[in-house]
């Protein structure tokens, strides 16, 4: 922990991060988009997506991570996830009641089945991922400021 003032870690960590961070992000997207067929779901997928950005930030420092994902985008994603989830719930009033499954069920064991559940999964994963990554950022930025003060 003695080289926190340098941007990022050593060359080995940076190289391996460059190779793996895309795979982790892709695995998160797979987990939450297939949440209604196989184990997984919006919560686990959202946390994996957040972990891929945490990985990038730990290896490269905060400047590179903020260039990929600016802070305005994180708050936008968080609000958008909550809004999509509420909008899906409110659209159920068109057919009768709150959270009505109003889209056709489709054929089981297919990707496009189960009505509103895949869309709810996407909304929840956006919300959880953006929320946890913003918690991490808030905890890390305080450290950077107290280091600067010294």
């Amino acid at each position: 922990m003695c080289r926190e003032h340098e941007p990022g870690m050593t060359l080995i960590v940076k190289t391996i991060t460059r190779l793996t961070v895309g795979l982790i992000l892709l695995y998160g997207i797979y987990i939450f988009s297939h949440g209604h067929i196989s184990p997984g779901g919006g919560f686990a997928g959202g946390v994996i997506v957040a972990l891929s950005f945490v990985h990038l930030m730990l290896a490269y420092g905060k400047d590179v991570a903020f260039k990929r994902v600016p802070q305005a985008a994180i708050s936008l994603f968080e609000g958008m996830g909550a809004m999509i989830f509420l909008a899906i719930a409110l659209l159920g009033f068109a057919g009768g009641y709150f959270f009505l499954n109003f889209i056709a069920k489709g054929e089981p064991f297919r990707l496009f089945s189960a009505g509103i559940i895949p869309f709810c999964n996407i909304a929840i994963s956006l919300k959880v991922g953006a929320g946890l990554f913003s918690i991490f950022i808030a905890l890390v930025i305080l450290k950077f400021e107290s280091e600067q003060k010294k």
């Binding site: 779901g41 919560f43 946390v47 959880v128 929320g131 918690i135």
Partner: peptide
Amino acid sequence: VLTSIVIGLASMALLVGIAMRIYE
């Protein structure tokens, strides 16, 4: 329990934040 696990993470992050402020 699936919802409870994620709520536990968020509340623990809040506790850690308050603890770091107390240390400061």
